[in-house]
Design a protein around this nucleic acid. Structure first.
Lengths: 342, 342
DNA sequence: CTCGTCACATTGAACGTTCCATGGAAGATG
DNA sequence: CATCTTCCATGGAACGTTCAATGTGACGAG
């Protein structure tokens, strides 16, 4: 559909048009726009805002960026290769990040690395003024992305702890405390025979969840047989769950390292005709959408993605504004979500 | 870490610096940058590029955008509410979109709607020059987003068909042809007793997949008992799969409407001790990561996300450049992925 | 010899905003 | 009364690029 001829010639309404309509200067409009309220009176504010409304004025981001050197955009780096079962969580997190960004008037630019120059994109984005800062997730402790960003003096924040010799721009979940809450709940409900199922991999949080589980059990004076603890490949979970539930003296509560694993265990229990929640308790860790669509819903330690996103963005913006960030790393508690599975 | 004092004062290297270093004019550098090769000689090109390399020049996006009115960014709208099982696919698609964008030097900005003004963000983004165009996915045929974008004269493209009275800026998957290929494969392998499992919902593609399945079966002179066709809620899938596989005269091939459903059926078959691929064949539809981590891997009609993303972006850019796009809607074939499950 | 054309290169202006320095009027202070 | 603040407001310049128009020298045609 071709544009109107009339539309064609009309210039976009800019700050000068607003200024003219309101009978003030350019700069005053700019001040109102940026909320520098020490520089204008209430009456002027009113005149300007109503002129903006009347003209349907929208500030031009490109011009703002060019002059102020702020893009109001935050980059989010996403790995292209490993499209594994963390998918659900990644999207959940991304969405939270987008919303948290929107709340402080920032937008999220998603990018992946290029095959030949995996890190260059980061520098590129900032050098070309495409983003003000970068958010990382799925970061392992020695993440070369984080090191590169720190070395290049690019503002960033990581969901996941960072090596101690890097600036501590991270937010993370307290896995141990999360497991503590889960175990406490199960113990309070009278469970005595526990089992743990998780997937393998060298991510520290996987180890922490298992450790947190074991620690808290022994705090309650309970022990778990070695055979009832499993951390292995994805495919092994189903078999092991089957073994556990059909063996003699089966566990009354199965704690898992993630909602994804819990969902598998749930399905095994179902197929054995067990009533989950009554005959056997199953817990997850994550609290995202997965556990809400299972039947029954999962009891889980919920990762507070909204809060995490907010904190990550706050860390980025402090660096952008002050050139540095005094805040230390932040370990956030999980929230216990009570579903029907325990 | 505070910046160097020396670093502080140094101006960013711009096009004029390159021009000076190369001994040419501003505009010539700009022409080289934008590949307008009819305006410079090979020798000049060489001088300019080597000057750019020497100075580590990076063009400033904000300035380019301000002048040229192109942001080189494409918006991708994502629904905030429905974080359901489509997650895996959504992320898969997003990633493909990001890569396809990168190939044509465009980046992807992710955004969600605001509670009070669900559609306003679209206009906002374009009016403020944050994105050049918008990509929609999960669009239903009468999508109010698409209508709004068309009415507002904002370039866009949709993954999913659009109402005939809208400009046909869409790309979609040929579900019927996909099912045809799946059925043909199973028939060629000698299967006679079929069943179909899918989830309910009013999305046209769900209906199309079932229709495609039924059509192709009858083309082969085969029929499927009514009881062996199921389209119901998520939770019903497990039960129905169990019924089918334990009933008398069970199907030798179970065709499903998505990889997610197939994965569930797979797990039911496993728990019944069936050897999937040998005792029973199971197929999916999607071909994303889900089917690659199952055991065995899924045979599935793969949705060509890379191609789709490329086409969507091409549609957007044509609209941006010419103000319109002559191309009609595009229905793409699936690719049959042969896993171990059939 | 004049003119037109072609290939390449240049310059002034503009895009729309914010930074920076300055100005004026009213009220407070000495 | 002179001067010093405080509050509000202003205009010139700059951010770094591309648009649009113009220039120049070489070469071929008339």
């Amino acid at each position: 559909m071709p544009r109107d001829g009339a539309d064609q010639g009309r210039r976009r309404v800019g700050i000068v048009d607003v200024a003219a309509a309101a009978g003030v200067s350019r700069q005053t409009v700019s001040n109102v726009l940026n909320g520098r309220d020490e520089y204008y009176s209430a009456a002027t504010h009113e005149k300007v805002t109503s002129a903006m409304r009347a003209l349907g004025y929208q500030p031009n981001r490109a011009a703002q960026t060019l002059r102020s050197r702020r893009t109001m955009q935050i980059g989010y780096h996403i790995f292209g290769e490993q499209l594994d079962r963390a998918q659900g969580f990644t999207l959940h997190f991304l969405l939270a990040l987008v919303k948290a960004g929107a709340d402080v008037d920032h937008q999220v630019l998603v990018f992946t690395h290029h095959r030949d120059d995996p890190l260059g994109v980061f520098k590129d984005l900032v050098a070309r003024h495409a983003v003000d800062a970068v958010v990382l997730s799925e970061s392992s402790v020695r993440d070369e992305r984080a090191r590169f960003l720190a070395d290049s003096d690019i503002p960033f924040a990581s969901f996941g702890r960072l090596s101690p010799d890097l600036p501590q721009h991270w937010v993370d979940v307290d896995n141990v405390a999360g497991m503590r809450a889960v175990v406490d709940l199960l113990v309070a409900e009278g469970h005595q025979r526990f089992a743990y199922l998780g997937t393998d991999g060298d991510q520290y949080w996987k180890a922490e969840r298992l450790d947190g589980f074991l620690q808290r059990l022994s705090h309650h004076g309970l022990r778990v047989p070695k055979a009832s603890v499993f951390r292995g490949p994805d495919q092994g979970v189903r078999r092991r769950a089957h073994q556990l539930l059909t063996g003699k003296n089966p566990p009354s509560a199965i704690v898992t390292g993630s909602d994804a694993v819990a969902a598998v265990v749930l399905s095994v229990a179902h197929s054995l005709g067990l009533r989950v929640g009554a005959d056997v308790a199953i817990t997850g860790f994550d609290g995202g959408a997965v556990g809400l669509v299972t039947e029954p819903t999962l009891t889980s330690a919920r990762i507070p993605v909204e809060r995490i996103s907010r904190e990550l963005i706050a860390r980025c913006l402090r660096q952008v504004e002050h050139g540095h960030d005094g805040e230390p790393g932040l370990l956030l508690p999980t929230e216990l979500v009570r579903g029907g599975s325990a």
